[in-house]
Design a protein around this nucleic acid. Structure first.
Lengths: 239, 239
DNA sequence: CCGGATGGGGTAGCATGCTACTTTGCGGGT
DNA sequence: ACCCGCAAAGTAGCATGCTACCCCATCCGG
C-alpha cells in the first residue's frame, strides 16, 4: 500500500542537504536523540544515516558525545574538485572518441534541456540537465563504479551550488560553459574536450571556494588547480 | 578500561574480508539474523555493517529478503583498477615533482621494508609496506579525500591480492615492480614515474582479472587498460 | 584560594521487541 | 491435471530499553 521510502534514506538525504546548505551549522555538535525528535522518527534510522554520513566524511562521530558537523571548508571543496578533475577531464577526452550518433544526440538533448531551463528560469530542471550531461560524458568510459563515485562527489556540492547560482553566475553563464565541451566532443577533439571540461570545473570550483572563504567572487583564484592540470596535460589558462 | 573496538566496525571488516576471500559465496543470499548468530552479536551492528557495505557496492540489500553478496566479478575488478589508474598514475607523476628529502627517504624506507618482508617471506608485512608506499606516492597531491578514497579501492582487492600472491607471483616479483616507480620519482622524471605506476597497476589488475575469470594466468590480458592509458598520455606497452 | 575527586546529566552503541511486507508452498476449486 | 488464492514462514526496518562511558560542574580537602 504505502509505497514508502526508507526513513533511513530520507533522513540521510535530508541531513546531507541540511548540512550543505548551512542549516546545521558547521562545527556544531548534535545528538541522535535531537535529530530523532526533529524528524519524528526513532533513533535507529537516524543513527544509520549519521554513520553513513560519517563514512563520506561530512560528519565525525564522537563517542558518547554526539556527532559533529564538519561541513565543507574551502579546502575540502577544493579537494572534491581536484578529484573531479582527475576523473572528468580524462572522461571528456574519452567522450570525444565515441562516435555513436545516439550518444551525441543525448548530449545535445541535455544541452537543449539546459537552455529550456534557462528560459523558464527553472533552477531545478537546470541542475538535473547539468547532472545528466556530466554523467553522460563520464559514461564514455563505461565504468559504472566511476560514474557512481562521481555522483557522490557531485552531491557534496549540489546543494551548495544551487545556492550559489543566484549569487554569482546566472543559469545562462553556467549553461554556456557546457557548449564548448559538447562541441569538442562532437568534433572528436579529445584535447579540446579535456580543456573545456577542465576550464568548466576550475571555474565552478573557484567560485565555490571563494564563497566558502567568505571572499568576494571577484577574488576567485584558480591557481590551486595547476598541478592537476599539468598532470592531465591540459594547458594552464592564465588568469 | 576495555579499549574496545566497535562491534559494528569489526563486523564491517570481517564481513568484507569474508566476502572478498570467497567465504561468503558470491550471489548467495543471507539474512541479518544469520550473521548476528554467526558473530554472536545482536542484529543492530550487523545491519549497520551491511548497510555500509551496500554503500560501497559489495552487497545489495533486498527488502524483506536479506542481502545478496555481489562479490567482485572480473569486470568489477577491472573497474576498480581503471579508477586507480586515473588517480594513481597522475599521482606518481606528481610525486616526481616533490623534492623533499624526507619524502624520498620515506619511499626508500617502504621499499626496504618490502625487501625485508620478502626475506622473511612475511606476506602481511609486505602488504603493509606495499600499501604504505602507494599511499605515500598519492599523498604527493596533498589531497586527503583522494588518498582516503584510494584506501577504499585498495580494500576491495586487498584480501583477494593476498590470496593471489602465492599462486601467481612471488613477493619478490611484486616487490621488483615497485623499484622503477621509486627510481623514476627520485630522478624527478614524471613521465617515467607515471609509466612505471601504470605498468604495475595493469600487471596486478590483469592477473586478478584472469584469476576471477577462471583463466590461467598465462592468459592475462591487459587490453582493457588501453583507453585509460591513452587518456593519461602513457605509452601503451605491447603484450 | 586552588586542585583533585566525585556525582549527575547526557550520549553512543548494543540488544531486542514489534510490524509490515515478500516469498513460497500447499491445498482446494475448476 | 492445472491454476489460483491463501496462509505460514522468514525478513528488513523501525521503535525502544538498557548499559557503559564521557564530560562537566560542583564540592571537599589542602
Amino acid at each position: 500500500m504505502t509505497q514508502y521510502t526508507k526513513h533511513s534514506d530520507v533522513i540521510f538525504r535530508e541531513l546531507r542537504a541540511a548540512i550543505l546548505n548551512g542549516e546545521l551549522e558547521k562545527g556544531s555538535l548534535h545528538s541522535i536523540y535531537e535529530l530523532a525528535d526533529r524528524y519524528q522518527v526513532s533513533r535507529t534510522p537516524v543513527r544509520e544515516a549519521v554513520v553513513r554520513l560519517a563514512d563520506t566524511g561530512i560528519v565525525t562521530i564522537e563517542r558518547n558525545r554526539g556527532f559533529r558537523v564538519r561541513g565543507l571548508s574551502a579546502i575540502e571543496i577544493q579537494n572534491v574538485f581536484e578529484v573531479r578533475l582527475l576523473l572528468e577531464v580524462p572522461g571528456a577526452a574519452q567522450a570525444a572518441t565515441v562516435d555513436d550518433p545516439e550518444y551525441i544526440a543525448a548530449l545535445d538533448g541535455f544541452l537543449a534541456e539546459m537552455h529550456e531551463a534557462v528560459a523558464r528560469d527553472d533552477a531545478e530542471a537546470f541542475s538535473a540537465a547539468d547532472y545528466a550531461l556530466h554523467d553522460r560524458v563520464l559514461s564514455a568510459f563505461g565504468n559504472p563504479r566511476l560514474t557512481e563515485y562521481m555522483h557522490t562527489l557531485r552531491n557534496f556540492t549540489k546543494e551548495m551550488g544551487a545556492v550559489t547560482l543566484g549569487h554569482t553566475r546566472t543559469l545562462r553563464d553556467v549553461g554556456l560553459e557546457h557548449e564548448p565541451i559538447v562541441t569538442a566532443i562532437k568534433s572528436g577533439d579529445s584535447a579540446a574536450s579535456a580543456k573545456a571540461m577542465a576550464d568548466h570545473l576550475v571555474e565552478t570550483a573557484s567560485l565555490l571556494i571563494a564563497r566558502a572563504s567568505g571572499l568576494d567572487t571577484e577574488a576567485a583564484d584558480s591557481s590551486w588547480a595547476e598541478p592537476y592540470l599539468r598532470r592531465l596535460n591540459v594547458a594552464v589558462t592564465e588568469a
